[in-house]
Design a protein around this nucleic acid. Structure first.
Lengths: 208, 208, 208, 208
DNA sequence: GATGAATGAGCGTTCATTCAT
DNA sequence: TATGAATGAACGCTCATTCAT
């Protein structure tokens, strides 16, 4: 189908300026993820983008606005996927599986943004402009905790589960994966999700 | 009564220097953990320690040397405990249980150091002076990976386990706990370890 | 009617370039006067002129060259008027009255240029390119001082006058008026001149 | 009188640290007055104070806080003197004379601050932190305008006076003097005041 | 004539560090 | 032991200016 082909081409050939912004943003995300936001200088970003520090300010208002755009773009997409899962009318186990899978997929697509989020969300959430980070955190907790609780109520998860503790364990394991995951490596996001879900649901002990 | 005298002196007049050092170090660990090493100024540490920034340099060579001492003290103690477990001749499941338990205990004792380690180890490991971080990382991997592999070989863990992936999941879940664990909270380290091990070994799904 | 036709064209299509220049110059003068030369960015001027900063450089060599043109245009006109007065063969009192009146008229016509001149002349005079500012200052002093001295010699001004001091007082009062004068306000330039001359010549005290 | 002598000495010998602040402030005022606040770099101030730019921040929060301290110190003193005059129960002519004299004295004491005030007050007044500048401006107008109006009512000033215009003329002449006055020059502040008052009250025209 | 994108110098400010007292 | 004052490098950012299109 040549039509869909040319439509995807349109996104890859550098026809229009807006792409420069996103190039810079990708570079910035990479550096923020590698060294931390505070430890990253705008000169480092500019170097990596092949320009001078001052030139960044033609495209962005500030270093912080780059961070903002990286994080909010990521969260917007994440929540689009999560909401699709949460409104699909799945049972608790299927919901859990879908959330885990989407999470690892998101790490695949936005590895840097996730890593930055992990590192900076807590202290950034305090600043008024980044209030959406704290909000997201709460929606997140509600989604996961609710799913676990529903699973216990529906008797698909163990009745003796400490759901708060379990929520934390799961949340951490999933997201921290951004710190070691490399796209194009041995495991696809779906494979990682499958492995993790197997461990989480069935445990690692061999059954008698 | 000379006993009570010397005891009250200890709090008012600086009898023995080592204590001042450790006070400062504890304060430094607290703020490093809260705000990140780079985002922490020596003035913040000094303020919290009730002195001026310059005065810290009587006790320490540099900001980095404080970080160094915090991390190496923690790792020394961690490895003392780990080595005790690893040389105790336990089976793989008991070894795993003991390592998890010791890890949560270590988080309880050195919460700040663990949090700092999590945040900074990767990029610090590159600097020659902090080579011991990378070394520790490797010993760590060997201990956990070996235990998992031994468990699979001994048929106490599932044969279909991807041990590398499992290692990463376990390592992350355990150590990231430092970011939310609060000493003196609802759960003791041992309780948290028990809950996590139950989840890890048996899974969260309800058995038929 | 070709006349009205060409007259309306002049406002819509850019027939002759010189007009664009002067539009920009007027805009620049306005913002230089309002915020000071140094505090004015070329972007501010360009915004107000409805173009991008870089585009200004098609019309002008530099920000400084705009300032230069504003000030020299103003001084050229000022001196044309002053010279007309000074060569008219008037007595000292009439000369003084005419200079004061022409000065307030000039403020009316070139308010911004006068305000800029007030603010920047002193430190600009040092730069070689703006030498004409210092020259103008000297011709200015000669004209006013000479008139005052002639007035004392001719016994139309008080013999106990400190002419240097009087010169400064008069000069300052006249030119600083540019900072509060608004064209089209309550008082015409001639009315202001009349009031000031009345005060200057007769004093404000009520005579017995 | 040795007592008054030693008391003035106490201000010149550099005994205590607070004086460093004021040295820097004096230097900053000098440079602000000479080149304008915006055009002055902190490096210029630091150079003139014999230190590096960063060192200024040990003594002051910011460049703006230096400006603030310069202006508010000046205004505090000015208003102390003005209030003394205004509450002394003098007649309008004596009040006018006293205000003019105090103003020139203030120029003598705080020449730089006055020059800075002249240049920057208008646009600074807009910023909330410098609201006191606008307030001062209003008190100022009230004091002078009131005195002139009282003088007209009491028939010591001419009945045909446009008091608003006269106020502006007087205000400008007095304060702009800061731009040419040099302490220790030919004329004392009192002498300048006497000359200006003579001109203002009696006029410069020779009486028949 | 004007734009979009970049340059490079310099700005106000921060901060780890030093050192005489 | 601790302080007060300074250093100097680097930081985020601004801005006059350039230039291919």
């Amino acid at each position: 189908m040549p039509t869909s082909n040319s439509s995807s081409d349109r996104k890859k050939t550098p026809v229009n300026p807006p792409e420069r912004r996103e190039e810079i943003l990708a570079v910035a995300a990479e550096v923020f993820a590698a060294r931390g936001y505070n430890a990253t200088t705008v000169r480092t970003i500019a170097d990596a983008a092949g320009m001078l520090a001052g030139s960044l300010y033609y495209h962005f208002d500030s270093k912080e606005s780059m961070l903002d755009e990286i994080l909010s773009t990521f969260l917007d997409e994440l929540w689009a996927r999560y909401d699709a899962v949460l409104t699909a009318g799945l049972g608790p186990r299927q919901t859990l599986e879908a959330l885990v899978t989407e999470s690892f997929r998101e790490i695949d697509r936005h590895r840097c943004a996730v890593a930055i989020y992990q590192r900076e969300a807590r202290h950034l959430g305090a600043r008024p402009h980044f209030g959406y980070l704290a909000e997201s955190q709460q929606r997140f907790e509600k989604a996961w905790l609710g799913t676990l609780e529903r699973g216990v109520a529906d008797e698909v998860f163990r009745p003796d589960l400490d759901v708060r503790l379990t929520y934390r364990f799961v949340r951490d394991t999933v997201w921290v994966a951004a710190s070691w995951y490399r796209p194009g490596g041995l495991h696809s996001p779906e494979e990682i999700a499958r492995q993790y879900l197997s461990m989480l649901l069935e445990g690692i002990a061999l059954r008698a």
